[in-house]
């Protein structure tokens, strides 16, 4: 199996198998280009200027875990049930990160185009929204309430069924 060197924005090199690296479609297409240009034998170095070292390390953890034998790779149809469940548990533990890390991770996954990881991150972010009030979500995500007063009243009224009465909570 070939190995690839991925170079992060701060210049740190990570050596991974080409199989793991190819989980990222961006890297995969870069690799193909490189191979065509440089020939089969030369070392493959892929610079990734948009990803910092610690995020890249985290992403690669995912890639390596998901390319181990028996994983759901394209072309391999038979995935054992236990393996799939193990991966699910692994994914869940993998997602135990701070909001900050999650943000960097989702940006990296977006840029590197790792579909599985992107999906996982989006679910992680969705879980952050779940069970919060609109005000809470704004605080957490750093969003500004840019509604006009009437507009906000309107949208609140439409979605009233999902909102807990703030006053009611304040009393408790």
């Amino acid at each position: 199996m070939r190995t690839v060197i991925l170079r992060s924005s701060d210049g740190a090199d990570h050596i991974v198998s080409s199989e793991a690296a190819s989980l990222s479609r961006t890297v995969q297409s870069l690799l193909e280009e490189l191979e065509a240009k440089e020939g089969e034998e030369s070392p493959l170095i892929v610079p990734l200027p948009n990803v910092c070292d610690c995020t890249l390390r985290k992403v690669l953890q995912y890639c390596i875990q998901h390319t181990e034998p028996g994983t759901n790779l394209t072309g391999r149809i038979h995935v054992s049930e236990t393996r799939r469940r193990d991966l699910e548990v692994w994914d869940r533990n993998y997602m135990l990160v701070s909001t900050d890390e999650l943000y960097h991770l989702v940006m990296a996954a977006h840029y590197l185009n790792v579909p599985g990881l992107l999906e996982l991150c989006c679910e992680g972010i969705a879980n952050l929204i779940r069970g919060k009030s609109p005000q809470h979500v704004r605080q957490h995500f750093g969003l500004v309430n840019n509604f006009e007063k009437a507009e906000e009243e309107d949208i609140r009224r439409t979605n009233l069924w999902a909102l807990v009465d703030e006053k009611e909570l304040a009393k408790k």
């Binding site: 989702v106 989006c122 679910e123 069970g131 309430n145 949208i155 999902a162």
Partner: peptide, 24 residues
């Protein structure tokens, strides 16, 4: 990305998300 996140939300959270800001 926001769209991808929203596709994971259940009805209650989606309704809350709608109340957050204009783009959402």
């Amino acid at each position: 990305l926001v769209a991808a996140v929203f596709s994971h939300l259940g009805p209650c959270s989606l309704a809350v998300a709608a109340c957050v800001c204009r783009t959402w």
